[in-house]
Design a protein around this nucleic acid. Structure first.
Lengths: 364, 364
DNA sequence: ACCCGCAGGTATATCGATTAACCAACGTCG
DNA sequence: CGACGTTGGTTAATCGATATACCTGCGGGT
């Protein structure tokens, strides 16, 4: 396919002959332009659907690009357009033990489902603490590496939304009820509903001494769920057998469980803030010689796949982490100027009853 | 928050307050050069340590950069240097059920530990199958988005090393014994040793009917471990009670366990290819009314944190996924031309004995 | 006095794609 | 017939950083 250009004799604009096959590197837009017999501007317009290009040349360019296996260089495009098509997800991982792990797997699955089809990538980072997380955002923004960020585990007095707004980085905040604002929250509505349902379920089974294991006090959802728990009990004229705050480590789950089960008035049911901890709690209870659910009922939160396969199968509050992840991605993409359907996140957390909850043991 | 447009945003460097939050966008190398009273070339050389710059100006440039909060634009650098400082990790996820999930969390932890301190980012992608994985690499390379890739779950006839070599992308392959070559394998040596140790342990406990649940036949380590299993038994003059291949789904784990436990000569011990499946198997056994380990012993593989908290605690083969991840990162970084210590991966897989294995039940 | 060498920078082309501005050819209409 | 709008492109500036080639003093050797 030879291209002859002789309109302007004497003009030597770019004239260098590519003469292909010399370059082992990837093809550039120039190669495609040459192959299609057009200018690089035309190629760009053809693949982007901008400008005024006849359908015929458009097709010609596209086939040339396909034949050469060319895709626009992400770096060049990013530099020119100041968009990287990359979203950051920073996971805080205080210790080596990552209790909330499977939760993030679900979340990532949901995110990827919406990001990948639109050519967006997910940049994953692990940091030890909140300070490092903030520093990381600053660096990523300073380097222009990302277009947006997904913030997880909203805190009551979260420094990140302010920071990211100041940095001018689009973001969404998971686990926050605040829908509008510069950094919108994303998540199922009626956060308390799941816990409420769990309490109702336990009450119906005859439980009267129900203990609540809460997550770190600084997390937003911790407070919401704890309140829901206490209210639900109060409406039945009851008080919590106990409420304990913990970090999200497995060690804490075990320790707290052991402490609660050693209480003089032993609780007959334990409600945990996530499935990983519930599993640990269940293990601790069984190890203490108690049967689940005959002696003590256990409820988790998140409804992770794992819970279905344990013995006994774990009753848990389903908050559709995957769907929340998808919604978060869509919301964030919209903030990045992408044309996406608005994320609709219907429904509320619902209890999934399995085998780890049962009738309260007869009072001795 | 008024935005004044005067075509000269950087008129006076020490302005009152950086022209407001909606104003200037991020600083560029030009701003730093102006602030330090040098050329952009000097700034570049100062931060990169290249060229010949006096210590005095170097320091001046660095402080100017720090004051402006400037870091070189990742896109610009990537374009110029043709390096993105980004590594891809593609996770194959055949169905919605991701049995190997926690394994990847560990792996990512190990990778990040080496990547992050060197300014590298981890680009995470989820794909449904092998074909999509290959297509994804092609796209990522065509777009020049990554400098290297971590391939997981080596297969006996793996198309990816060839592909990536053809694409000219540095890569490492996890779970392959082949150390050299264009795409070196990374992992603990003596893959069979862990299984061998598990068998020895079970034999010592008096087990004679031991069944093996293997992963998908196409995976390299599946074959290696299966062979090790059979050899170890053969050396004791025994044959496997059964060997079953499965995909890595939880459903399969449960189904296989139920089948094995229904065998006329019921196995007294089950060896699983990963901890997630072992958990499922343990659950299935318990649900079938058997006690673990009194009636049947269970061994997992990977030694994930979760196993420590179950009841009974899971005996499992530790293959130090995190350390392997770190070694993979180092090997890959070296291939990317980074100056890193060579990854040394001493040791071999070792059995961690906990509570899910016990003396074989007395023959009836 | 003259040239050399060198320390310490600067000017500029370049990476690959996008986009605003421009231009040629071709009706069309007053 | 000539001004004018359309169609379908092209030219060239630009994004921000890097690297190569090129200056400019200045001290020293002969």
């Amino acid at each position: 396919m030879k291209v002859r250009r002789e309109d302007r004799p004497g003009e030597n604009a770019p004239g260098p002959v590519e003469e292909g096959s010399a370059g082992p590197g990837r093809p550039t837009i120039k190669a495609v332009a040459a192959a299609a017999g057009v200018s690089t501007a035309t190629v760009s317009q053809a693949v982007n659907g901008t400008g005024r290009i006849s359908e015929a040349t458009r097709r010609r360019v596209l086939t040339a690009a396909a034949e050469l296996g060319w895709s626009p260089s992400a770096s060049a495009t990013a530099l020119r357009r100041a968009r990287t098509r990359t979203i950051a997800l920073v996971v805080r991982r205080p210790t080596d033990v990552l209790g909330v792990d499977p939760h993030f797997s679900e979340l990532i699955t949901g995110l990827e489902g919406e990001l990948a089809p639109r050519g967006y990538g997910l940049l994953l980072h692990l940091v030890p603490g909140l300070a490092e997380e903030s520093a990381l955002y600053e660096r990523l923004v300073a380097e222009g590496r990302i277009d947006g960020a997904v913030l997880t585990e909203a805190r009551s007095d979260d420094p990140r939304p302010g920071l990211l707004q100041r940095l001018g980085l689009p973001a969404v905040l998971l686990g926050s009820p605040e829908r509008g604002g510069p950094v919108p929250g994303v998540g199922l509505g009626q956060q308390g509903a799941g816990v409420r349902e769990a309490v109702a379920h336990l009450l119906a089974l005859g439980h009267r001494r129900i203990a609540y294991v809460a997550g770190p006090a600084e997390l937003v959802h911790t407070g919401a769920r704890r309140t829901a728990f206490e209210q639900a009990l109060a409406e039945a004229g009851l008080r919590p057998a106990a409420v304990r705050h913990t970090d999200f480590t497995e060690e804490a789950a075990v320790a707290v469980t052991e402490e609660l089960l050693a209480l003089p008035e032993r609780p007959t049911a334990l409600v945990f803030p996530n499935d990983s901890m519930a599993v640990c709690g269940m293990g601790a209870a069984q190890r203490a010689g108690l049967r689940v659910p005959a002696d003590v009922s256990v409820v988790g939160y998140d409804n992770l796949p794992l819970g279905r396969w344990l013995h006994p199968r774990l009753s848990s509050v389903d908050q559709q982490v995957q769907r929340v992840g998808a919604a978060a991605a869509l919301t964030l993409l919209a903030r990045c100027g992408e044309d996406v359907p608005t994320a609709l996140l219907e429904g509320r957390p619902r209890l999934v009853v399995r085998e780890s909850t049962g009738p309260a043991p007869a009072a001795p």
